[in-house]
Design a protein around this nucleic acid. Structure first.
Lengths: 173, 173
DNA sequence: TTAAACTTTCAGTATTATCTGAAAGTAAGA
DNA sequence: TCTTACTTTCAGATAATACTGAAAGTTTAA
């Protein structure tokens, strides 16, 4: 039977399925997360056709989500000499992956959110004591917290894996 | 005109709308995020009726999402003496809020994810050198990263706001 | 040029998530 | 016990999101 597959492929299937499910709890399209999981565990770069077949998705869907992943810088396009079609490969280093995701989410979501908070704080800074002032204080506190998180995130993102680990050891000990 | 409203209420509307949008990028139901934003900026505890009216949502929707927020421990039920209906109030301290969310997401999503990774790693630990072994290593690395994140998260969650700030200052300097 | 090989786009369709409203459930107190 | 005031549930409706497939677009090379 050609239905036989290596044992690890069974685990891989499970990983892909679960990574997809997890993604959708975090506002990430299920197919996108699955493609990511597939490429993350791929021994070689893959092309669209292979991905379509493996995940049973249409060309349009595969293409859109691959582009999205490339946009997130989690996946790179690989051109093979003598071949016309594009191959895709994912970043496999977990630490780099984490940093990439953190940076991207910051840019896409935290930055706009911070804008709103600043705006709300600014618009209410003249409020006299009472509910208006309380609201102002609340927005200020949120704003400061977000700014603080961003700084931490930037600092950690700038670290090499080794120094991050060292830093963490100190924190955890 | 009774359409007039305090200036800060205008900012509050914007905050609620944007908090809802942000939430949905993070896999959180928009209404839930909006109720949270509403309560977070409420001078007094509110009851279901007020929330329904303010956000134009049905009783069922309001009730479900309030219960969900109580389940997340982001909102508390308040009973007023002499009153039969329940009032709701949100945690306003940003640091506490953050810790609560971190703990809850860990419990709900990271714990199960870790299970899958461990499983995948376990099932492939005997793989001989080659793609199977590479997969095993990949799962191990992800597992270790998740375990590490959990430790950091637990440590930070255990901190009082003050000591967290102190810690952060050292990191950022 | 023309054709072949591949990628992108998008209108229409399918799927999933969310919401409504009314009926059923619960509990206090008259 | 009955009524009233409230909360919960959930089947069906609606809205948001994701997916398909085929046509249009692009690039390479003969």
């Amino acid at each position: 039977m050609s239905n036989e597959q290596a044992n690890w492929e069974t685990s891989r299937e499970e990983f892909i399925a679960q990574w997809g499910a997890l993604g959708s709890h975090w506002g990430i399209n299920r197919t996108m997360a699955q493609i990511h999981a597939l490429l993350m565990t791929a021994p070689e770069a893959m092309h669209t056709e292979e991905i379509m077949e493996r995940l049973h998705v249409s060309r349009g869907n595969a293409n859109t989500n691959l582009r999205e992943l490339v946009g997130w810088a989690l996946v790179r396009v690989v051109v093979k000499k003598g071949e016309r079609r594009e191959y895709f490969e994912a970043e496999k280093d977990v630490w780099k992956m984490f940093i990439t995701i953190a940076k991207e989410r910051k840019r896409r979501e935290l930055d706009p959110a911070l804008g709103v908070l600043k705006n709300c704080a600014e618009q209410t800074k003249e409020e006299p004591a009472g509910p208006g002032k309380d609201f102002h204080r609340q927005m200020k506190e949120l704003q400061e917290f977000v700014e603080f998180s961003m700084k931490v995130s930037d600092t950690v993102s700038g670290m090499k894996h080794a120094s991050a680990l060292q830093w963490a050891m100190r924190l955890l000990s």
